[in-house]
Amino acid sequence: MNVLITICGRAGSKGAKNKNFRLFLGNPLIYYTIKSAKLFKENSLDLKVDICVNSDNLIAKEIAEREKVFFVERPSELAMDKTPKVDAIRDVLIKMEKEKGKKYDYVIDLDITAPLRKIKDIRNALEKTVKTRSDVVFSVVPARRNPYFNMVEKDKKGKIVFSKPVAYTCRQDAPEVYDMNASIYCYDRNTLVDVSKDPFDEKIDVIIMPEVYVVDIDHEEDFNVMECLVKNYYKDEFNEIF
Rank of each mutant, 00 (worst) to 15 (best):
F40D: 03
K41E: 13
E42M: 08
E42C: 07
N43R: 15
N43M: 14
S44Q: 01
L47A: 04
L47Y: 13
L47R: 10
K48Q: 14
K48I: 00
D50W: 09
D50C: 02
C52M: 02
N54K: 03
D56A: 11
N57W: 15
L58K: 13
L58W: 15
I59T: 14
A60K: 03
A60S: 05
A60Q: 09
K61C: 08
K61T: 06
K61Y: 12
A64W: 06
E65K: 14
E65C: 08
R66E: 11
E67W: 02
E67P: 08
K68D: 11
V69Q: 03
V69K: 02
E73D: 06
R74Y: 04
P75L: 01
S76T: 05
E77A: 00
D81N: 11
P84Q: 01
K85Q: 12
V86E: 02
V86D: 02
V86P: 01
D87E: 15
A88R: 04
R90W: 12
D91L: 14
D91C: 09
V92L: 01
V92F: 11
L93Y: 05
L93Q: 02
I94R: 14
M96C: 12
M96A: 11
E97H: 14
K98Q: 13
K98H: 08
E99L: 15
E99N: 08
E99D: 14
K100Q: 13
K100L: 15
G101S: 12
G101K: 01
K102H: 08
K103A: 01
K103Q: 07
Y104M: 03
D105Q: 13
D105W: 07
